[in-house]
């Protein structure tokens, strides 16, 4: 018993919350298999969750980085919509090519990061306000770029969008007795690469550790010789860049431009990060946790919809409930841990 409590005390905050997240995800997935039937046993069900949420994973990675540094960025959904629309218009109306459209996405992300990062880091304006304005600007700009939603017809783009990457050995036999290969979309590969890259960045680079230090205690970080302003700036830069990339992955998944795209994506990204064990107060969090956060969030959405509660409002309510529960868990666990350390 005392051994366990000692371990509990010694665990880093990040490790503790990460453990909670992973345990919760597996319990939930097992629960889904038990109560919702075999559908959840099929690997393709899991891959479909990945396919549908590749963009969200990327957005949530960026969000986690900003949150670890002690900030927040609610413009990512807006940026996603803006990227989709800009690229769609470029590809179809201006006859652009796919490679250049990717550059546009990255360019929009970088521009956002530059402006928001500067305002937050160097002018010391609250990140929430800056990114709230950023979100509205992006949404507004999207309709200015083009008002009506439309599907992209550009051939090479459509080909790219429909590319399926077969996952060997994971297929299943369908009702007609035919073997169907399991597949993922390109976006999933991009998302996984980004998860790995960001994990390494946070774990093994000076910049990554600076994010934690600044989020843990800004004043101390300054005294420890970290360039706090630059670190904050970089966190926003990275988040917006990932929003640009995530936006393109989203675009690749839906294949259209619309002002209503990725509505509420910022909320999902924040919720995923929080469920994944990123503390709002900064300094604590992990990309692997965030990855599982996204999976947990979408698994529960799947459970809700396969339970027959298909009305749109249930999704909103479940996400909010999850968010609420995890926020309270965080608040309670950290308070208890603090008390344990004191004694």
């Amino acid at each position: 018993m005392s051994n366990i409590s000692r371990k509990f005390k010694d665990m880093t905050d990040t490790g503790l919350l990460l453990t909670i997240t992973i345990v919760v995800f597996f319990l939930m997935y097992i629960g889904a298999i038990v109560f919702q039937g075999k559908g959840f046993l099929k690997p393709q069900t899991f891959f479909n969750i990945l396919n549908a949420n590749a963009a969200l994973i990327i957005l949530a990675c960026g969000m986690s980085i900003v949150m670890i540094t002690g900030g927040i960025d609610i413009s990512v959904g807006g940026v996603t919509a803006l990227v989709s629309m800009s690229c769609a218009v470029y590809l179809d109306y201006k006859g652009g090519n796919v490679a250049a459209s990717m550059l546009i996405a990255i360019g929009i992300g970088l521009a956002y990061g530059l402006v928001q990062g500067f305002l937050v880091a160097y002018l010391d304006i609250q990140p929430f306000i800056v990114s709230l304005a950023g979100m509205f600007f992006a949404r507004g700009m999207t309709t200015i770029v083009n008002t009506n939603p439309f599907n992209v017809q550009n051939e090479s783009f459509v080909a790219l969008k429909d590319t399926r990457i077969i996952v060997p050995g994971m297929g299943s036999v369908n009702k007609l007795g035919k073997y169907v290969n399991a597949y993922v979309e390109i976006g999933v590969i991009v998302a996984l690469i980004i998860v790995i890259l960001m994990f390494c960045l946070l774990r093994w680079t000076k910049l990554g550790r600076s994010f934690y230090a600044v989020g843990g205690n800004k004043q101390s970080a300054l005294m420890l010789g970290i360039n706090v302003k630059r670190t904050k700036f970089m966190s926003h830069m990275l988040c917006s860049l990932l929003a640009g990339i995530g936006g393109y992955v989203y675009f690749l998944h839906v294949g259209s431009g619309a002002a209503t795209h990725a509505q509420g994506a910022e909320m999902n990204a924040i919720a995923s990060s929080i469920i994944g064990g990123t503390m709002l107060t900064g300094g604590v969090g992990n990309i692997i946790g965030t990855f599982f956060g996204v999976l947990s969030l979408s698994t529960i959405q799947n459970i809700v919809s396969s339970a027959g509660l298909d009305q749109a409002w249930w999704t909103g309510i479940t996400i909010a409930a999850m968010l609420c529960i995890f926020l309270v868990i965080q608040s309670v666990v950290m308070a208890r841990k603090k008390r344990a350390v004191k004694k």
Partner: peptide
């Protein structure tokens, strides 16, 4: 629908 973009600019100017 485009209104938010203009307001956002006002907000940013204001907070800056």
């Amino acid at each position: 629908d485009a209104l938010p973009a203009y307001k956002a600019v006002v907000v940013i100017l204001l907070v800056v």
